[in-house]
Amino acid sequence: QVALSRTQVCGILREELFQGDAFHQSDTHIFIIMGASGDLAKKKIYPTIWWLFRDGLLPENTFIVGYARSRLTVADIRKQSEPFFKATPEEKLKLEDFFARNSYVAGQYDDAASYQRLNSHMNALHLGSQANRLFYLALPPTVYEAVTKNIHESCMSQIGWNRIIVEKPFGRDLQSSDRLSNHISSLFREDQIYRIDHYLGKEMVQNLMVLRFANRIFGPIWNRDNIACVILTFKEPFGTEGRGGYFDEFGIIRDVMQNHLLQMLCLVAMEKPASTNSDDVRDEKVKVLKCISEVQANNVVLGQYVGNPDGEGEATKGYLDDPTVPRGSTTATFAAVVLYVENERWDGVPFILRCGKALNERKAEVRLQFHDVAGDIFHQQCKRNELVIRVQPNEAVYTKMMTKKPGMFFNPEESELDLTYGNRYKNVKLPDAYERLILDVFCGSQMHFVRSDELREAWRIFTPLLHQIELEKPKPIPYIYGSRGPTEADELMKRVGFQYEGTYKWVNPHKL
C-alpha cells in the first residue's frame, strides 16, 4: 500500500502544474464570482478556492472578487462561507491571508454602469489591468444573457486571457439551449467557454479513460460480442427537503440524466481518441451522441416518491408533501431510460440510465454486464461477469466473477477481482471535483468540460421526450421513500436483457 498525506498529494500536483506551459504561476489572475451571495458560491466555490489557495495550487498573485446585487462586505462573505471551509486552528494565518486577497463589488446584473465599476475595481488591483480574468457564473440561467453581454462589453482583460465558467442547466430543451449557446458564442470563442459538469471532475469518471485505453485486457472485450448491457446509475437517499420548488422546474431527467449520466455513457462508449488533447476527446464523445436516436417512450419509466409510513423524519414525507412543490405536480423524481448506440461496436446493446431521489442508498456507478459463458459445464450455477466502476461513495473498480467454492467439488461461487483505489492508495485525500475543474480552467484544459456541439446532441436525444411529458403530463409511478424505485423499472431492465441475480454482496474494501 502507498500512504500519501494531503501535503504529498498537493506537492505532486504542484510539480505537475508548474512543469506545464499552460499554468502561468507568476502571472496575476483575477477570479470573479458572479452571484457571490448565492448558495453555490457559499457552499462550493469559495470553499474550493480556499482549498486550492491553502494547498498552494493557485497562481501566487490571485485575487478573488465577488459580485452580486446584495450590498455585502468581505466580512459578510466570510461569515456565510467559512463554515464550509473546514479550516483547522493551525490554518488561521493562512485564512487571514486568503481573505486579504478577497474583495466585493455590489451591482445589478443588467446595468452597464455596475460592470464599469467592477472593471475599475479590477484595474485598481495590483497589475489588475493586465491580469488573466476568470469569470464564474454562479447564477440562474435567466440572467446569463445580460451578464455575459455586460462582461464582454465592460470587463474583459485587454492583455491577459479571459475565460468564463457556465453552470448547468444549459437551457431547458434543445431550442433554449441553442439560443443560449448562440448568444454566448457570439461574445466569446469556444476556447474561452467552460460549461461545467462537476461529474466530469470526479476521480473515477476520469479513471474510465485510463482503464479503457491503457489496459490491453479490456480492449478486445469492450464491444457487443461480449457486453450484454451497460447500466449507469445515480441514486440519492434523500428527497427534495424543502427545495422542491427549484427541482420541480427541471425534474430528474434535466437535473441528472441528460448531463451526468449521458457524459458517463460517452466515456464508456467512445472510441479511442487520437490523443488526450481536449478536442480529440470531445470529438469522440460527440460521435457517440450522434449514434444515439431520440428516446422512445416505451423505453422510459418515470416515478415519484411517496412517504414511507414506517419511516422516520423526512422519510415519512412524499414529494408532494414538500411545501415548495406545486400542488398535484407530476414532475418525476425517478427515471429509467434505455438508449442504444447504433454503431458497429455497440449495435443492440442497451445502455440503461437510472437516477432518482429518496432511494435506498447513495450511489453513482457504471456497471457493464457481460454475456453468459458459452457451453456451460457447471449446471447453470454460473452468474454473469460484471465490471463495476463505483464513482461514489467509496470509489472502487471491481470485476464480479466466478471462482471455485472451497471444498471437494467443482462448485462455482461469485467473488470479485478488486482493482480499488483504496487498497493501493491508503487514506489518500484526493482533490474534489470542483478543485480539479477550476484548476483545469486556470490551465486552459477543456477536456472535462462540455463543448457546444456535445451539448446540442445531448438535448436532441431528450427534448422530444421532455416535450411529450410536458404536454401529456403522465402521472409518475409512486414508489416508497427509501425503496429501490418503481418495480416497473426493474421490469424494463429485465425486458431489454439485464439479469439481476441478487445473490452477490459487494464487500467494501475500504472497511476491511
Rank of each mutant, 00 (worst) to 15 (best):
K287I: 06
A396M: 04
V337G: 14
Q369V: 08
T463Q: 06
V441L: 05
D372K: 06
L265T: 08
L320R: 10
A374R: 11
L320T: 07
L492V: 08
T276P: 10
K429D: 10
N423G: 08
S415V: 12
V301Q: 08
E386R: 03
A336R: 01
G313D: 15
V391S: 03
V338D: 06
G497F: 07
E271R: 06
M401H: 12
G318K: 06
F449P: 03
A458F: 03
A358S: 10
I292Y: 06
Q263P: 04
N299D: 13
C266D: 04
K404G: 02
Q258W: 02
L320E: 07
M264Q: 06
V286C: 09
N277W: 11
G407E: 10
P326F: 06
R354L: 00
C382H: 14
Q392S: 10
I438Y: 06
L359M: 14
P350R: 03
L417C: 05
S275M: 05
E472G: 14
F351T: 02
L471S: 15
T420D: 14
G307E: 10
A396C: 13
Y479G: 03
C266L: 07
D310P: 06
D453Y: 03
R390W: 03
V428F: 13
F410S: 11
E501C: 10
V281E: 04
V366N: 01
G318E: 06
Q258T: 08
Q304V: 06
A336Y: 01
Y319W: 01
E414Y: 10
T403N: 14
V428D: 15
V268Y: 05
N394S: 09
R495K: 11
S293K: 15
L419M: 13
R424V: 05
V349S: 03
L261T: 05
Y340C: 09
V338N: 12
L320Q: 09
E271K: 07
E342C: 13
N385F: 04
A332R: 03
V301F: 04
G375N: 14
D453E: 01
W506M: 05
K287A: 11
L417E: 08
W506C: 03
I477E: 07
P393T: 06
C355Q: 04
R451P: 06
L471V: 15
N298I: 12
K400S: 00
M401D: 03
S329E: 05
D490M: 11
P486K: 04
Y421V: 07
E414R: 08
T331P: 04
V388Q: 01
V391I: 13
Y479K: 01
V268M: 11
V388Y: 02
R362C: 08
M408F: 11
F442D: 03
N385I: 03
K429Y: 12
A374W: 08
A297I: 14
T333Y: 04
V450M: 05
F409V: 15
E294Q: 14
E365H: 02
Q296D: 14
K404W: 01
H448G: 07
T503A: 08
L265I: 08
V300S: 10
T316M: 14
E314F: 12
P350M: 00
K290N: 13
G303E: 04
V341Y: 01
E457V: 07
F378Q: 05
L265P: 02
